[in-house]
């Protein structure tokens, strides 16, 4: 008995050391993965925060050389473009996702699914060019509509795909329970399957909005940007990403600062949206 104990202890000690080393490795690697994220965040906050002021949210960009000015118009424009894009893409995406998940069986559905997968990986600059050719060129004007369509075009496949995946998580026996209650199929889908998946769908909506909110390329040739308040949806529309872009490549120190502040604002928007998504999931999770 006595001679066996040390071997046991030794093996166990070796196991513990190995365990510790692996744990250390995993923890430090995830730390490394976070470094670039924190660097970006740190840099944007450090350079952007000082330039933020109430004025920045409410006023128009100042002409070169004049101090002050803000991106109020770009903020409003961005929100309008995002809102329009959501109005187009979210209902379409959810209903498309319902089709794929609840009805999509045959060849047609398979091809829809394939196209959706392709669309999710279309580079955003291509989306911008496509909307330019389809909308901007015939209308002979950049517009908020065009920008919204470009965003919607990016959101739609993502919404469809995630809605499909979410609805497929609903077990089939819940669907059958709905049918067995004597509900027609569409009522069962809308009021039981979709409703039961509401927290996940809301999260998907918020994340798809946050995902496109910072996209610049689709707006470059569509919304274009504008140094004034948005003057109708068929006019070139001011928006944060293109404003940041044009300020960042300008030669003026003051504009650089404003670009940083804009970048900070954009980051803040995405952050807030994500925060809402989290809070909603947390609250709905308590209701499960």
């Amino acid at each position: 008995m006595k001679s066996q104990t040390p071997i046991f202890v030794r093996v166990s000690f070796r196991r513990k050391v190995k365990n510790f080393l692996m744990l250390f490795l995993i923890a430090s690697l995830s730390g490394v993965a976070l470094v670039p994220l924190f660097l970006v965040f740190y840099h944007v906050v450090k350079s952007g925060f000082p330039a933020l002021s109430w004025n920045f949210f409410t006023s128009l960009p100042a002409p070169v050389g004049e101090p002050g000015g803000g991106m109020g118009n770009a903020l409003v424009g961005s929100l309008i473009i995002l809102g329009l894009a959501s109005l187009i893409a979210i209902p379409l995406g959810i209903f498309g996702g319902i089709y794929l998940s609840e009805y999509g069986k045959g060849k047609f559905a398979a091809s829809v699914r394939f196209v959706v997968d392709l669309l999710t990986s279309v580079p955003s600059i291509v989306t911008g060019l496509f909307i330019y050719a389809m909308v901007v060129a015939p209308m002979k004007s950049y517009s908020a509509w065009a920008g919204a369509l470009a965003y919607a075009f990016m959101m739609l496949p993502v919404m469809m795909k995630t809605t499909e995946e979410i609805l497929k998580l609903m077990p089939d026996h819940v669907r059958e329970a709905g049918l067995a209650l004597g509900l027609s199929r569409w009522k069962m889908i809308l009021f039981i399957v979709l409703r039961g998946s509401r927290p996940a769908i809301v999260t998907a909506v918020l994340i798809s909005i946050a995902r496109v909110a910072g996209e610049t390329a689709p707006l470059l040739f569509t919304a274009f940007g504008n140094r004034f308040w948005l003057d109708g949806l068929s006019e070139p529309a001011p928006n944060l990403p293109t404003q940041i872009y044009s300020y960042a490549i300008s030669p003026f120190e003051q504009w650089h600062q404003q670009a940083w502040a804009g970048a900070f604002l954009l980051l803040l928007m995405v952050f807030v949206v994500n925060l809402f998504a989290r809070a909603y999931v947390y609250r709905a999770g308590g209701r499960k």
Binding site: H173, V174, I192, R195, G196, S197, R198, A284, K288
Partner: peptide, 8 residues
Amino acid sequence: KPNPFPGM
């Protein structure tokens, strides 16, 4: 399986 409607 007991299958109450989720979210209700």
